[in-house]
Nucleic acid binder design. Structure first.
Lengths: 192, 192
DNA sequence: CATAACCTTCCTACTGGTAGGTAGATAACC
DNA sequence: GGTTATCTACCTACCAGTAGGAAGGTTATG
């Protein structure tokens, strides 16, 4: 038996896909209730408030991301390939429509009206992703794989913005292939 | 007498700032009602449904953008300066917190659950902005001002994604200066 | 000119439905 | 038996949207 997810994890899974689709204000306890066949009140048993639910959800997402990115850095030798794996991951997610958007990028758009406990966690994800990208770019530059115009931190911020912007464009145009098309143009500038 | 805005324009103004803050699902007729001191029902008189209100709002935004960008191309000679003016515009908006995000970028994130009449208009804005950027980059490349790696259309898509991603990062970090910092890194790659 | 018809705008009052959240009972499990 | 999970039933607040009318301006008609 592989996937015997607990109720609370099922709740988080559904909530996550709903947030990716419509943001913090785009889903309700009733939506989750209908999706997994449980009463609204039962969800409140697991997650007393919506803010708490989303805070836990972002924590889980952050931990998965952190784990995945660290594993990537440990198991893949070349910084260029590390970067490629990261971008391929998103390309696949977007093509599958499995998770066609980063949860934190989605929530970042609503930052101004997010509960503090959620907003701070979203910001933390942006920070750690930027740090990971900076370390990859820095290592790659030292090995002569990348040509950086500015400091690795600056280039990392730029790359992260490109990734999020490319997700947005792919969604706006309804064209999953647009993500990697845009990103490839960006990567070309780093490796050229 | 300068600014004697009509009621329906006041409604659109408030709705726009609310959308920029929290997206389509992040505002209500009651919010607008409270903001401009008019009853909810009166807003329905001007805009029967929410979908219609936002559709009109996006039309207005698109027309303003189109007008502004075409004027820029007509009045500013150098493509490099046209681009700089465009980016300065957003830098100022973000620093003033006047309009710290593009309405259409905000709505694009919620594309999947937007009414069709809104979604199609958002897509149209992305198309015309990409076209404008492509024409500026193309003209600039011919004058030897820009070094493009790919076709102007591809570079334009990339630049547009960077702009939207930079807006998102500035918001996520709560740092208005981050927008131009990210974009400058990007522009350096085009002019270098 | 006067008056009747109409139009625009805004109002109060309301509808059916949904939001997040709670209270308390019931069942299942260790 | 106590804990955990789920249930029914409910609450208050809010949602988008409607009905019907009051006030004032505009237009058409005599």
């Amino acid at each position: 038996m592989k996937s015997m997810a607990s109720t609370s994890e099922k709740i988080l899974d559904i909530a996550q896909s709903l947030i990716v689709a419509g943001g913090y204000n785009g889903f309700s306890y009733a939506d989750i209730s209908a999706a997994i066949g449980i009463r609204k009140a039962s969800i409140h048993h697991h997650f007393p408030t919506k803010a708490e639910l989303v805070a836990v959800l972002v924590d889980r997402y952050r931990q998965q991301a952190e784990t995945g990115l660290q594993a990537l850095r440990a198991q893949v030798a070349s910084p260029a390939e590390q970067l490629q794996f990261y971008l391929n991951y998103w390309d696949t997610c977007i093509r599958d429509a499995a998770q066609p958007f980063c949860v934190c990028a989605m929530l970042a758009g609503e930052m101004q009206m997010l509960p503090d406990e959620v907003a701070s966690r979203v910001r933390a994800h942006f920070q750690s992703l930027a740090a990971w990208l900076a370390s990859v770019l820095s290592a790659g530059a030292q090995q002569g794989l990348f040509r950086l115009n500015g400091r690795p931190e600056e280039e990392a911020q730029m790359l992260m913005a490109s990734v999020h912007g490319a997700m947005l464009s792919a969604r706006a145009f309804g064209d999953p292939g647009l993500f990697i098309a845009i990103i490839s143009t960006q990567i070309a500038k780093l490796t050229k």
